[in-house]
Amino acid sequence: MRQPQSFGETVPPLVVVDTSVVINLNATGRANDIVRAFGVTLCASGVVRDELFLDRLNGRDDAGLAQLLVKDGLLEFLPFDVESESLFESLVAGPAEKTLDDGEAATLALAAAWSGVAIIDERKAIKIAGDRFPDLQLRTTADILRSDRVFAALGRAEVAEAVFNGLKEARMAVPAFHHDWLVGLLGERIVECRSLPAALRQIFE
């Protein structure tokens, strides 16, 4: 599986986020500050907007929180064009092992059609993206949170609190290659993050 690469000081101009990324950022309690520090208006498909409206199980109203980001110019929902709609349809039709849910498919379709960077956390989506779009740049929510710009603006302690909240409240997925960073950032608090692999949490148990 191709591993997403971390952000450095430079952030690409077109960053397309999946539904889970918006949910993770909302769960940090600092979404506005994080995206503002990141320095780029995030983009998402209208499909992602619809998924956020349908998700009422977490008690946070992610659709409403996303609209606050839109109001502040930090998130923009975009429609498909002809190319991205065709790519979307190709990613949702076919055998289950080769297709994605609508939000993931829409994210990859927009990013691939418009030469953007896709922010996506699910392992299956990352694998399919690597197979279908080998030139597409991939990142994860964790890459936003550990970016130089966010650390400079919020400071280590506030980033640690945001990451902890994302793990606890949204069960944020974090790729294995970021686990050492998580351990260094959170220390013993990692034990409370039940969405992380047991082997990782057992370091402090």
Rank of each mutant, 00 (worst) to 15 (best):
F80K: 04
P95Q: 01
R49D: 01
G46L: 12
Q67W: 14
P79W: 06
G46V: 05
G39L: 09
G39E: 07
D81Q: 04
A31E: 05
S90M: 01
A93Y: 11
L91R: 03
N58G: 00
L87T: 03
F38T: 10
I126R: 15
L110K: 10
G73H: 15
A118E: 12
V92I: 15
V92N: 07
G116K: 13
S45N: 09
V82F: 05
E85Q: 14
G64K: 13
I126V: 13
A93R: 15
L65W: 02
V117H: 01
R56N: 02
V48M: 04
L57Y: 10
T107V: 10
G59Y: 04
T99H: 03
F88Q: 02
V40K: 09
L110P: 03
D101C: 15
G116Q: 13
V92F: 09
L75G: 03
I126Q: 14
L87C: 00
R123V: 12
L68K: 09
L78Y: 03
L52Y: 03
S84I: 15
D81T: 06
L42Q: 02
L54V: 09
L108N: 08
G94K: 00
V92W: 07
V70A: 11
K98Q: 02
G116E: 13
L68V: 12
K124V: 10
V47L: 14
V92S: 07
A111V: 10
R56V: 10
F77V: 00
A63E: 11
E89Y: 13
I126T: 06
P95S: 00
A111D: 06
V70Q: 11
E51P: 04
E97G: 00
V40M: 04
G46H: 11
A44G: 04
V82N: 02
L68R: 12
L57C: 03
V92Q: 09
A106Y: 14
I119K: 02
D50K: 08
E83N: 08
S84D: 12
K71M: 13
A31M: 10
E104P: 12
E83F: 05
L68Q: 10
